[in-house]
């Protein structure tokens, strides 16, 4: 921003110099623009500070309320006394299983759709526009609607009942739009030089896709995955009627299993005296999200290094 206003100033001073009274006016102009720069910078800092403070506040709140609950047993034991005692081990396992189902279904489907949209359709083609329109619509549907859909379709029509599988599949429907849209951006970010270069070498579109474009688009896809995981982990409404409320250790994907977010919600809303565990669980969720974010970034760095060397 600074640089831009500087060049603007130079252009202006050049123009004014021609009129013979340049110096004075340019001086005033420069001063006011510098002041505006400072104001803008100040505003940016304020916004950033407010954001950080909000996050800090939430974190501090969670820490003060929930840190006391954290222990080895908290991570390994099943909840007792409606969650006020015991741990969240089984809930953690259920959550990870739900997430795994969700990603195993949504990721291949989402990436394939994104690849189709970006590589095999023209940007303004009617098919592409239609798919994108549907995805945008889907992205704005409230999650409770996905929950009710999942309860009817997966739990009842497909007979999966309250199960981790139902929950994961419902979540997959929900994160699909996010995944497709950011993967598509990832694909579009890949330089056309690579596509043209590959075509000029007589490489088939599918080979180019698999060995050149896909690896190059992986960072964008990873962003989509992380966003999708974030949304999936934060979800309650879509899961309460699908993966359910049971806190027993799941023996299979057809068992019902409570997710971390539902556990937090239930303890905060339904269980008197549930706040410490709710905060402790929220703390675990925040750390889990941070770890996934960080892990994805690290994995991308390593991938880029390894892939470019292979």
């Amino acid at each position: 921003m600074k640089r831009q206003s500087k060049t603007q100033n130079q252009a202006l001073s050049g123009w004014w110099a021609g009129t013979g009274q340049g110096n004075l006016v340019t001086g005033a102009r420069r001063q006011s623009s510098r002041w505006r720069d400072r104001l803008a910078a100040g505003l940016c800092w304020t916004v950033a500070a407010v954001l950080l403070a909000t996050f800090g506040w939430i974190l501090a709140d969670l820490l003060s309320e929930g840190l006391g609950r954290l222990s080895w047993d908290f991570f390994t034991k099943a909840p007792m006394d409606a969650g006020r005692a015991g741990g969240i081990g089984t809930v953690l396992v259920s959550t990870l299983l739900i997430l795994a189902v969700c990603l195993l279904v949504a990721a291949p489907l989402g990436i394939a759709t994104a690849a189709y949209l970006s590589e095999y359709t023209r940007r303004k083609s009617s098919v592409g526009r239609w798919i994108r329109g549907c995805l945008d619509l889907l992205a704005s549907v409230p999650s409770i609607v996905f929950g009710l859909f999942g309860a009817v379709f997966f739990c009842q029509m497909l007979g999966l009942g309250f199960s981790i599988l139902s929950g994961g599949l419902t979540l997959a429907c929900m994160v699909l739009p996010i995944l497709v849209r950011s993967s598509e951006t990832g694909f579009r970010m890949v330089s056309d030089d690579l596509r043209r270069g590959a075509a000029a070498l007589g490489m088939r579109q599918n080979t180019t896709m698999a060995f050149v474009i896909l690896p190059a688009a992986l960072p964008g896809i990873a962003v989509g995955l992380v966003l999708g995981i974030g949304r999936a982990l934060a979800e309650t409404a879509a899961l309460i009627f699908t993966s359910g409320y049971v806190t027993r250790m799941p023996a299979s994907l057809l068992d019902s299993g409570r997710s971390l977010s539902i556990h937090i919600y239930d303890l905060a809303m339904n269980v008197p005296g549930g706040e410490p565990t709710a905060s402790g669980t929220a703390l675990v969720l925040v750390v889990l999200l941070a770890a996934i974010n960080w892990g994805a970034a690290a994995a991308m760095d390593r991938w880029r290094g390894r892939w470019s060397r292979s």
Partner: peptide, 15 residues
Amino acid sequence: PNPFPFSIRRNFTLP
């Protein structure tokens, strides 16, 4: 110049 962003060798073996 538009080499593929992988190793020198793979730039040849792939095509």
